[in-house]
Design a binder for these strands. Structure first.
Lengths: 231, 231
DNA sequence: CGATCGCTTGATTCCGATCAACAGGAGTGG
DNA sequence: CCACTCCTGTTGATCGGAATCAAGCGATCG
């Protein structure tokens, strides 16, 4: 089991890490941004593990820079990615005592790490903190419910279209989407193979629905067509 | 939009409905049973809608008798069932203001219906109630995360095995599992077609992994084999 | 310059979907 | 009681979409 301390040790002197504001506030509007987490901002290199499935959930995490994926594995190595977490997103929050996913950095990332016990104690005193924790879990639930529909009932084109529209809605409203993750991660998120994802990107480009400036830079040329495909 | 009042009106005199205990307690152990919901126990006939996707989430529900399914629909009618709710299960709890699924009675059922606003107000005063609401949402999240892995990365046999093991773990520890739902519901839960579900049941019976006393009564003859299949 | 990695493309296979027919049971009404 | 219909489930034949197997391309890096 990788501990926070060992991770910090590998990545450098924890004393040099930036520290986030000490204020803790929870309002109804955006629990992820209003719940100001106390803790060190720690760098994680690409493809390093942040926590593992089954480990004790001692910390709560918030992405400052980079991107994180959470996944489950089947015995034979098949992988299902549950979510990508981008700057501003909180992840690793559990109501139970253990993590139910493994979390890894998709790209070099900076993550704020906060003691879970600290927040839990605060939640018993401040209803607005308790409410924020609930809302964060509920949002995660809503996201995975949408993914469930995609995995259960959509074809390859609809899955990729859904992914692109999701990434667009979560990026800076720019026309160009920068995908931090490789094709294999997209495949394992959408329940497809890397080849099918690649072919579908190519197909969408030949349809003029998207433009691939590079394999990681996508322009949504026809958002309406994508929405229609998404069914 | 079907309201509670109209549903009650159709089903008979609400004054004759049984009323659950007035006590409200929330402990750490089992939020579903400890959160004693106040409200009328209402009968719902098989295949009737309890609430619809997009409707205001004014009530919280608990199954007393029967079974409930929640689902989402794609434009072309493809359906994904998110969960089956059996006696003791709470459903329809939302952190937001609207229901994100449609709920229907799988079989003739009795459901305790409680005002959501009432519980929400209580949660701001009693941390243990707030904690129970969070835990209920977290359990739903865990369930749909497991389903996500099934839908994204398992084959037909693995999906049906997972379903049978889930139903077994949720039933009364008896050897015989009584399935309240038809094959079509199982198919829409597992992201398969009714034909594939039927064929897979037949295949598992010829493997001696299960015995089909009737199409709705299944005996798990070899639980270990099912677990192994489940990967 | 060679090696590796990420991605794309082609050829073929295979699992589950689709199309189709039929069987068994429950309920209904003659 | 039986004939009828409706509903649910099973089974067969064929099809198709994504997986698999395989090869090659381009960028990056040592």
């Amino acid at each position: 089991m990788r501990t926070l301390v060992s991770t910090v040790a590998k990545l450098g002197n924890p004393l040099t890490a930036a520290v986030s504001p000490i204020s803790v506030a929870a309002q109804e509007h955006d629990p992820a941004s209003d719940l100001q987490l106390i803790g060190a901002t720690i760098p994680y290199a690409r493809n390093t593990e942040i926590f593992g499935e089954g480990e004790a959930a001692e910390y709560i995490y918030k992405v400052v820079r980079g991107a994180v994926r959470t996944h489950k594995l089947l015995d034979d190595g098949r992988r299902q990615i549950g979510a990508f977490h981008l700057p501003g997103d909180v992840f690793g929050l559990e109501a139970g005592v253990t993590h139910r996913f493994t979390a890894e950095a998709v790209a070099d990332s900076s993550i704020i790490v906060t003691k879970r016990s600290w927040l839990m104690a605060l939640a018993t005193q401040k209803p607005e903190v308790a409410r924020s924790l609930w809302t964060l879990t509920a949002r995660e639930l809503e996201h995975v419910q949408d993914l469930m529909l995609t995995l259960g009932r959509k074809n390859a084109v609809q899955r990729v279209a859904a992914f692109l529209l999701e990434m667009e809605s979560r990026s800076n409203c720019e026309k160009v989407i920068n995908l931090p993750m490789p094709r294999q991660d997209i495949a394992d998120y959408l329940g497809l193979t890397i080849e099918t994802v690649s072919r579908t990107f190519t197909q969408l480009e030949s349809n003029s629905a998207i433009e691939l400036q590079t394999s990681r830079r996508v322009v949504l040329r026809n958002r309406e067509a994508l929405k229609q495909m998404n069914s």
